[in-house]
Design a protein around this nucleic acid. Structure first.
Length: 725
RNA sequence: GGGCAUUUAGCUCAGUUGGUUAGAGCGUUGCAUUCACAUUGCAAAGGUCACUGGUUCGAGUCCAGUAAUGCCCACCA
């Protein structure tokens, strides 16, 4: 049979993926000698069901597939669990936007159930597209274990987790000033906020003519909610006022102001005196707690004023700001007006300007003691009293979890130190509804609704990261003590991008630490961000996105995968360049032609060869060296180094040098037979070494060798990794 | 304001514990080519490893400082 001169990926990939699925080997239970294999587990960071996968996903998934394929060939019971994330706010916001455009209707036009169903449908449609993309990338995911953060099994896990934390007092309900997004009409976490430098006016003024202290603010409209003025305890200027209380009328609103001393106040800023607005500033709220000050809300969920005379009441904050500033000037109360740069907080998802508001929310207490569950956490004994913060810290500090690159450990610790209680309730519909019911003063938390009448369920849903925090074990059947959970948890390695170290990685450690008394994974490999040629992030606003499928169609999946892995050190950003993908297509073709050469020249079927010539000796040594180095680099997750090793070996040493030399040796009857065996051996090992990176072409060539009875193992994907004696 | 990182060939980046003439891909230049492959081969040019100082027999690699760039965290009202 005549072999085509060039490798054509379009004729290979889809068929081969289908064939792999037929073998069942993506499922570790169906691997040859499954019982005697040692487990190796990876949970896929579940992509959001908001849309389609981008190049960042292709990168993330490629490196995981490379690792999992390598481990499978090394004889591990390799499990890679696929799934998707419902991404609560992101998905609801996206759906609402699209639906409004299409139908002109918002969430208020539907019942909760109907609206939820519509989003779920939208999510599932997106999931379908995502799954087909994952197939295209050649990923050896175990589809029999597919999960979704908002499916039935995960719902059980979420409710169980909530109840356990509630029962142990770690989950509580309380008032706090939270980040309210008036646009999305929901709470957002600190991590979901973007800061934008904006020009603002800093006004220095007095509440009234006879008030002794001037204060400074960029938000005069909040000042109608002031209940105190704080100064530094050592500030000589204000000593005599500390403890005094004043009744003033400020812009038509009566205020009762107490002068307090607090170390948090910077005497050098402004007048050194701070107007305390407990209801609309997180810092002021904490100060109010310390000094037992009343909380006086003056802004509502729609960012409108709730107090004041007609000219002020009901006005938007931005308008109210100007109105009050004007009024103050008119009354001659303004002492100074300066231009300043301010960090404006905006909700990442909706772009809404964050309004700090006191709200009744659900929280996870990170500093509250609980009894540790099992003794599987290094440095924490079973039953020992610990806090979630301590668990998160100890798991990494003890070395039980290894984060690479190492520098992120420092960032992780720093984050934990500054961690406050985690607000887990969201005022949206799409997500896991909080499993708590109320009836008058009574409150009930359970997996199912209370059986008596008259209860209503909390309308809030959980932060999406609550369910993602359970991911490593909720996908393995928890809360049931399933065989999967026993065999595959803790997982071996988690490979997300460094940008979700806090969002997700830390939360998984928290959840697993509390619920299982164990770590969720032994190692965290943090990869970088894929950027465009100019080093910019891919984003919708820049419209610089490149569809991974377009690249696979043009150059082949193997070429895309190799280009992404090549030169991507852990934690480093990758510049995506189409030229690079093209180069790797050339490499795939090189491999194809090496195989062609070998197949048309070789009839050997055993490996009883020896180094008869200098060239033989050199190539055999080079292969051993490469095998050693690729193995070592894959073991230590230096995928980029391993990729480089094989590339160099296959193209330079094998193709350019030995193949050329072998042409002479094949003509010489004295060397012919031996050379053939060496050539075949070289090809087989190269295919094995390269398979985790370029699964399609290597497997395709393997199948051709199989047809020619030059190899025995049916599938390269489960062939033994080369070993050096 | 606090922290972390980066700076190596025209471009994108490797260079794991300090050890012989510093590497790769792409790009550039010249030559070759009915031979597995033009999706090719051979060859060449191209680097004071940001700068300054230090440790060492020896530094791209360790230490201190400087500069530029990027990122993260906090956020001052």
């Amino acid at each position: 049979m005549e072999l085509p001169k060039a490798y054509d990926h379009t004729q290979v990939e889809d068929k081969l993926y289908e064939a792999w699925m037929q073998t069942g080997y993506f499922n570790p239970d169906k691997l040859p000698n499954a019982e005697s294999r040692e487990p190796f587990t990876v949970s896929l960071p579940p992509p959001n069901v908001t849309g389609v996968l981008h190049m960042g996903h292709a990168f993330e998934d490629t490196i995981q597939d490379t690792v999992i394929r390598y481990q499978r060939m090394k004889g591990k019971k390799a499990l890679w669990v696929p799934g998707t994330d419902h991404a609560a706010i992101a998905t609801q916001a996206k759906f609402e936007k699209e639906h409004y455009k299409k139908a002109g209707k918002s969430r208020h036009d539907y019942t909760r159930e109907d609206f939820f169903a519509m989003i779920q449908e939208f999510a599932m449609a997106n999931q379908k597209g995502i799954l087909s993309q994952l197939h295209k990338l050649g990923l050896s995911l175990d589809w029999s274990r597919l999960a979704f953060t908002l499916d039935k099994d995960r719902e059980t896990a979420v409710k169980t987790a909530f109840k356990e934390m509630y029962d142990s007092g770690l989950i509580y309900r309380g008032h706090r000033v939270v980040n309210w997004d008036p646009k999305g009409q929901t709470t957002v976490s600190d991590d979901e906020i973007d800061y934008e430098e904006t020009k603002a006016k800093l006004y220095t003024f007095r509440y009234s003519k006879d008030f002794p202290i001037a204060i400074a603010t960029t938000r005069p409209e909040t000042k109608v909610g002031d209940t105190a003025v704080a100064v530094h305890p050592d500030d000589a200027r204000y000593q005599k006022y500390i403890g005094q209380e004043f009744d003033v009328e400020f812009c038509g609103v009566p205020l009762h102001i107490k002068i307090i001393a607090d170390k948090e106040v910077d005497p050098a800023f402004g007048t050194g005196a701070l107007g305390v607005t407990p209801a609309h500033s997180a810092v002021d709220y904490e100060m109010a707690q310390r000094h037992d000050l009343p909380i006086k809300p003056v802004i509502n969920e729609f960012a409108k004023m709730t107090v004041g005379e007609d000219w002020l009441l009901g006005k938007k904050t931005a308008e109210a700001r100007q109105l009050i500033a004007d009024k103050l000037k008119e009354q001659g109360l303004v002492e100074k007006e300066e231009e300043t740069i301010q960090n404006l907080s905006k909700a990442q998802r909706t772009g809404g300007v964050i309004e700090p508001l006191p709200k009744l929310q659900w929280f996870i207490a990170v500093n509250k003691k609980f009894k540790a569950k099992s003794g599987n956490l290094k440095g924490i004994a079973q039953g020992q009293e610990v806090t979630l913060k301590e668990v998160m810290k100890t798991a990494v500090e003890s070395g039980q979890i290894n984060i690479m690159p190492e520098r992120f450990e420092k960032i992780y610790f720093h984050w934990i130190e500054n961690l406050r209680d985690w607000c887990i309730s969201r005022q949206i519909i799409y997500g896991h509804q909080i499993p708590v019911w109320y009836k008058g003063e009574e409150i009930y938390c359970g997996l199912t609704p209370p059986e008596t009448d008259g209860w209503t369920q909390d309308t809030d849903t959980l932060d999406t990261w609550f369910s993602s925090g359970l991911w490593t074990f909720s996908t393995l059947g928890w809360p049931e003590q399933t065989p999967d959970l026993k065999a595959f948890h803790p997982t071996s390695v988690m490979m997300p991008g460094y940008e979700i170290l806090f969002f997700w990685v830390a939360r998984m450690v928290l959840m697993s630490g509390f619920l299982l008394g164990d770590i969720p994974f032994h190692r965290v490999y943090l990869h970088g961000i894929v950027r465009d040629k100019q080093g910019r992030k891919f984003s919708k606003s820049l419209n610089n996105g490149i569809d991974p499928l377009e690249m696979t169609a043009k150059y082949g999946t193997d070429a895309l995968r190799f280009a992404l892995v090549f030169g991507a050190a852990p934690g480093n950003d990758v510049i995506f360049d189409e030229q690079k993908v093209k180069g790797m297509k050339h490499f795939a073709n090189k491999l194809w032609n090496i195989a062609r050469f070998v197949m048309t020249n070789v009839e050997a079927s055993d490996f009883e060869f020896e180094a008869e010539t200098e060239a033989d000796k050199a190539i055999l040594e080079a292969l051993e060296k490469t095998t050693r180095s690729v193995t070592k680099n894959l073991d230590s997750f230096m995928l980029h180094e391993a990729a480089q090793d094989i590339y160099q070996f296959a193209w330079r040493e094998l193709a350019d040098v030995y193949l050329e030399k072998s042409k002479e040796q094949l003509k010489d009857e004295n060397y012919k037979a031996n050379t053939e065996k060496i050539l075949l051996h070289q090809l087989i090992w190269t295919l094995k070494l390269l398979h985790p990176f370029m699964p399609f072409i290597t497997e395709h060539i393997w199948q051709m060798l199989k047809e020619r009875q030059l190899v025995k193992t049916d599938w390269l994907m489960v062939a033994d990794w080369p070993k050096i004696q």
